[in-house]
Nucleic acid binder design. Structure first.
Length: 301
DNA sequence: CGTTGATCCTGGGCGC
DNA sequence: TGCGCCCAGGATCAAC
């Protein structure tokens, strides 16, 4: 679910509400989602600390308290929402389990694993059906944060000076894997997941099964630009809500209406009318247009 | 070292 | 209605 555009959408929703709030208590109802291997202090040491920053790196959301970072990775089905218990919760949803049809705030349920209560009465709720998501806690300093990103193999960060053509091209060095697999590797470009990988390859007109070693310079440059294009569009439309994604207010994004290939198997390509094909590459569903994304590169003119 | 495949979870959707 | 099966947006680690 949550790739860079979804996490950024959540970040933008949380930041104006969270900055300045003081954490009163933090409750973890399923320890499985906790990873305190790199912590420096106990969870209770967060009590009384004020939130100063809400940032993001790849698919990781980083909440900066006065002395610690609380870091969230939403896995496949993670949701991070704000709730004001003094307001009525929305009810009567079509799918109460996945939360896909949920809008506005909702009450905690058996899939809500972390509850954070703030001094003003608001709650920040972490909910994750499949429990692939994780919550981490670090001492607030640059060095442990960079070490954390290092341990989790985070590569180029889109929309920063970090993401430049030279570094991008270096990612192709000595590699033979398929393009789709390269894009899913967070050590290459951080934040790209299955949906945006397929969309970026369509945008660049590249076949997902092509080997990285077969790309010409111009094709790599197209991919370099295409990744930013599709991520930007995803953010612009508030993220892609295929199943579970909701923003910090519990609302769906609309980027699923803007996709060219993902989830469109058998439907006509929006550019050429050819039916979109779905296949499997490194065990992930992969969608592409066989005409717009030829397996063999077009001959030079 | 690079690459592939199994695995962790739960729910939804489909065919029978 | 129920059951079995397959699928799902991620990341890690063992094994080749």
């Amino acid at each position: 679910m949550p790739e860079l555009p979804e996490v950024e959408t959540i970040r933008r929703g949380l930041e104006p509400h969270l900055v300045g709030l003081t954490l009163q208590s933090l409750t973890v109802t399923d320890q499985k989602v906790l990873d305190l291997s790199a912590r420096d202090g106990t969870l209770s040491s967060l009590e009384g600390q004020r939130i100063e920053t809400v940032t993001r790196r790849g698919k990781y959301l980083v909440i900066g308290f006065e002395r610690h970072y609380l870091i969230f990775h939403l896995g496949m089905t993670g949701q991070l929402t704000l709730r004001d218990p003094r307001r009525p919760d929305a009810t009567g949803f079509e799918r109460t389990i996945t939360g896909l049809e949920w809008c506005e705030q909702h009450a905690p349920d058996r899939h809500t694993h972390v509850h954070i209560l703030f001094g003003n009465g608001w709650q920040l709720l972490f909910r994750d059906i499949r429990k692939f998501g994780r919550v981490y806690m670090l001492r607030r300093a640059l060095e442990p944060l960079l070490a954390f990103f290092e341990v989790h193999h985070l590569g180029l960060e889109p929309f920063t000076s970090d993401y430049n053509l030279k570094a991008f091209l270096a990612g192709f060095k000595n590699r033979t894997l398929r393009l789709k697999s390269l894009l899913l590797n967070q050590a290459f470009v951080a934040g790209v997941g299955n949906i945006y990988a397929d969309e970026a390859l369509f945008e660049a007109g590249l076949h997902p099964a092509r080997r990285t070693s077969s790309l010409r310079r111009a094709e790599k440059e197209r991919l370099f630009l295409a990744i930013q294009t599709v991520l930007e569009r995803g953010i612009e439309f508030g993220g892609t809500s295929f199943r579970d994604f909701v923003n910090s207010e519990g609302e769906k994004g609309t980027n699923q209406e803007k996709l060219f290939v993902y989830g469109r198997e058998g439907e006509q390509c929006l550019k050429c009318g050819t039916p979109i094909v779905k296949t499997v590459i490194s065990q992930r569903g992969t969608h592409f247009c066989p005409k717009c994304q030829p397996r063999r590169p077009a001959r030079l003119p």
